[in-house]
Design a protein around this nucleic acid. Structure first.
Lengths: 253, 253
DNA sequence: CGACACTTTGATACAAATCAACGAGGGTGG
DNA sequence: CCACCCTCGTTGATTTGTATCAAAGTGTCG
């Protein structure tokens, strides 16, 4: 089975992770028509007000979803990693209410909206799997509300690092304790509802407390559990499949 | 067709509002097995950690979805009105990561999870309609992130009042300019990431500015557009069907 | 090597939290 | 029917976390 390198393979893997798909279902997903493109950092995959005609799947790279306010303030409402549909909601709701922008160079696949809808109508199990994926995404956003609404800057940062670490690990991109972070401090601020200056001070605080270490664009978490405690982090809201190792089972160098 | 008073009728109406359902689809929804119960204010419909076996549909009343933090802080992540599924996500994700609590006395219908899944597997159009509904819910949560992350207390309150007004109007419960608000100031604070004291001062500020009026448990919006401007409110994120009247078409007494 | 984007630091200003009471309505029991 | 209590709303004084403004460092890429 050398479908291993099929561009949509990662999507299939991600869906199978949480839902049971038959061989036929998997093949139906892989049979989806698509066209791939390379894009550079900073490019937009969606803009407010657009009416989408195709669904964009992130094959590699890292993207942010955000809204701009009248006074120029920006709030990031989510990050996307490879395997994520970036604008499926907008497709189904007929209009984008946010912007999606790449933070790194990336490869994307465009799938005609009609083909997606057709696939989901003819394959209930696939529809269900995609639905469940979108519910898990929604759960993450809800946890962001909790963070931004009720946690201190220090906890918010700790929580976000924990989340990104786990999500990266779950996506098979390495250990939860070493996060490849293609974000500027300004973007961290826009994600957490804080200013750049305050992010800077808080990052340094965490560093002084030995809760994180930094080297270039990565963040290292020397003691996962301690950081999780500072962030009030519990992975339940990520709704990983049950196979996920307990926190205590993992402890990185 | 005296199905008019079928308890699930409101659900059918809500789904048909945004999606096209055939007569068969509608009847399949109405044929769902269910049992209704009356519940009193304060009762929980779901609790963190529970494994749901049935889906709860709110037939009447008002509920909040919230999370508790270690230090006792509470963050409300959403409100539910009649016609909403209150825990469909938890059912599909196998475990509740939040609590759902009634704010008013209410009637609810319990539908066995297996029957829901079966319905959605056999009727793709219904599955799609329910999915779209959950996407619209997610969009609301994302706007909450924007509010809590980047808006001032005054704007947050204005924005929430606008949202609740429109949602209530959309649900056929009256004009957007008169909101039946079964919330204490503490609950408003927990929803907006502010303290009770600060909510109190901000409410009075809006009142002094003649942006809202209060009488018992309702809030009256004398000039919708002015309040919408203060809140930076634009209804796009609610993703109502296109038939929605433009803001300027409506202006209440 | 220069340009530019990002990080870091300091000084100051505010918005919102906290702490502490008091007031007012609404339901309950005597 | 009144007195009581309990929750909710209101207000003031004070503190604190975070924003704002300003400027100097640092790194990286052409």
């Amino acid at each position: 089975m050398e479908a291993k390198h099929h561009p949509l393979q990662r999507l299939v893997t991600k869906l199978s992770d949480r839902s049971a798909l038959s061989e036929d279902d998997r093949e139906a997903v892989l049979a989806l028509p698509y066209s791939t493109r390379a894009k550079s950092a900073g490019q937009h995959l969606a803009r407010v007000g657009q009416v989408p005609t195709s669904c964009t799947l992130l094959l590699s790279g890292f993207a942010q979803r955000y809204r701009l306010l009248a006074d120029g303030a920006r709030q990031i409402v989510g990050f996307h990693v490879e395997g994520d549909f970036v604008d499926l909601h907008f497709s189904m709701l007929h209009r984008a209410s946010q912007c999606v922008q790449l933070l790194t160079p990336a490869r994307v696949a465009d799938i005609p909206k009609a083909a997606m809808v057709e696939l989901m109508r003819s394959r209930p199990a696939v529809a269900e799997a995609i639905w469940i994926e979108s519910l898990a995404d929604a759960s993450i956003v809800q946890e962001w509300v909790v963070s931004i609404g009720r946690r201190s800057a220090r906890s918010r940062l700790a929580h976000l690092f924990c989340e990104l670490g786990l999500r990266q690990e779950q996506a098979g991109l390495g250990s939860r304790c070493r996060i490849e972070l293609p974000l500027t401090q300004e973007q961290l601020g826009d994600a957490l509802g804080l200013t750049t200056v305050h992010i800077n001070r808080t990052v340094k605080l965490l560093e002084n407390e030995r809760l994180i270490e930094r080297s270039r664009r990565s963040v290292i978490i020397p003691d996962w559990e301690k950081l999780a405690e500072v962030g009030g982090f519990s992975s339940a809201y990520l709704h990983f499949a049950a196979s996920e190792p307990t926190l205590s089972q993992v402890n990185c160098p």
